[in-house]
Design a protein around this nucleic acid. Structure first.
Length: 384
RNA sequence: GUGAGUGUAGCUCAAGGGCAGAGCACUGGUCUGUGGCUCCAGGGGUUGGGGGUUCGAAACCCCUCACUCACC
């Protein structure tokens, strides 16, 4: 059992629980800061912990290319290598099928990439993803999936979905069945695809739920992939619902790559347990800070002489120590401390929001809290 | 003091008689399983000053001012 619910489920569908990993437990719902290449950019592990992080995400594809298996094994695994004591979830490289789509070719066997580092031809298969994840000691591995953009059309979407399912089976077949007293040494999550079609989403989730590997293992949890790239928030809720309903209640559900604070609140209400997204870290580097009352674009001239913190109610190291005027100055002078302090704030904001959601779920006040927050948070930007 | 050169957007510079432009900076927006500060839009000028030639001058002529270099 990798996930257990510590409180009765809410009528609305939101739930709290604990994710049991081979490292340390993770309270859910929770958010994973993104550390693609083995670093949450700009943040020392102590700062991550101080910001509330319990689990972080790395990208297997990038680590596989650089520094590679020899270095990572020599270091004693990815967690020791990067000085992070908590659990690590690895994304497989499925997203790179989309983001590097001019430099790869997808076949039934796997994906041929051209390395973004040196141009070398490399081949990534579902089996290699599982094997490499185990080899470098990640806590939770995502299977290799085939992600297509939402405007690819129905045939491409269906084809990618069927391939994702065949790859999922091959991934599960690669897993050794463990005698599970405690948490699994490495958990493996399947990924629900299906584009913008709710029926395909349900079909995919149902198929994955019943899927067993050669030695009888089920998936330890499920990702919902391919969202946050074009659909409207209301479409997304419908697709999440379609994906979640066939999944076993006892398994953790992870909404991959999503999203804005409002998106997270809406997804938690549907029963999602885990998230990751580049928004808090990337936007921090580009000078956009999240607050409970909307966006703060720290470069704006109006902050030049604003000697108050970014958020009066925020307990992060940045807000406790520095003013908006100082962050504004750091941004304009291109000082490296700027992105670091901005990232500390945004990551703390996201993780505090998750903590608050857990608390609201426990006390049974989530629905009204949610409505209040959705009315006041205004972070989604102008293009929806 | 003499000679040469240069003055164009906040900065660095294009345009050598026909609508005065670029990069950076500035102003605002943007970023959804990260290819190492992304992407988009906007404001900004009596072309050092004055006079002249010309239908038309940043450009050609004269005067003047400022700066740079070389020589006394």
């Amino acid at each position: 059992m990798i996930w257990s619910s510590s409180h009765p489920h809410q009528p609305g569908g939101g739930r709290v629980g604990t994710l049991h990993t081979s490292a340390s437990p993770v309270e859910t719902p929770n958010f994973m800061p993104v550390g693609t290449r083995g670093s949450v950019r700009g943040l020392h592990s102590n700062l991550l912990v101080r910001s509330g992080a319990e689990i972080i995400l790395v990208n297997l594809f990038h680590l596989w290319l650089r520094p590679g298996e020899t270095v990572l094994r020599g270091a004693g695994g990815i967690r020791r290598f990067m000085g992070w004591n908590g659990p690590v979830l690895s994304d497989s490289g499925g997203f790179q099928i989309l983001s590097l789509k001019d430099q790869r070719k997808v076949t039934e066997e796997g994906v041929h990439f051209r390395s973004p580092y040196d141009g070398a031809a490399v081949f990534l298969s579902p089996e290699e993803v599982v094997r490499f994840s185990q080899s470098i000691g990640v806590s939770i591995a995502m299977v290799l999936d085939h992600l297509v953009s939402s405007d690819e059309g129905e045939d491409k979407n269906r084809e990618a979905l069927e391939r994702t399912l065949r790859w999922a089976k091959r991934s599960l077949d690669t897993m050794k069945m463990e005698n599970r007293e405690g948490p699994p040494e490495m958990a493996l999550f399947g990924i629900v695809q299906g584009g913008l079609d709710p029926h395909l989403r349900s079909y995919c989730a149902a198929t994955l739920s019943g899927m067993r590997g050669k030695e009888g293992a089920f998936f330890d949890g499920y990702g919902i992939g391919g969202l946050g790239i074009g659909e409207s928030p209301s479409e997304r809720v419908e697709l999440i619902r379609a994906a979640l309903s066939p999944l076993p209640q006892s398994a953790p559900r992870y909404l991959m790559g999503v999203g804005y604070p409002e998106d997270l609140i809406e997804a938690v209400a549907e029963g999602v347990d885990l998230f990751d997204c580049v928004l808090p870290t990337r936007n921090a580097r580009n000078g956009m800070l999240f607050t409970r009352t909307g966006r703060v674009i720290i470069r704006n001239a109006k902050y030049a002489e604003d000697f108050s913190p970014v958020d009066e109610t925020c307990s992060c190291l940045t807000c406790q120590t520095y003013t908006k005027a100082y962050l504004h100055h750091l941004f304009r002078t291109d000082e490296m401390l700027g992105p670091v302090l901005n990232t500390v704030h945004n990551v703390t904001f996201y993780l505090s929001l998750m903590k608050e959601m857990r608390e609201q779920l426990v006390v049974g006040n989530f629905e009204s809290w949610k409505n209040h927050m959705l009315n006041n948070l205004n972070t989604r930007g102008k293009h929806e």
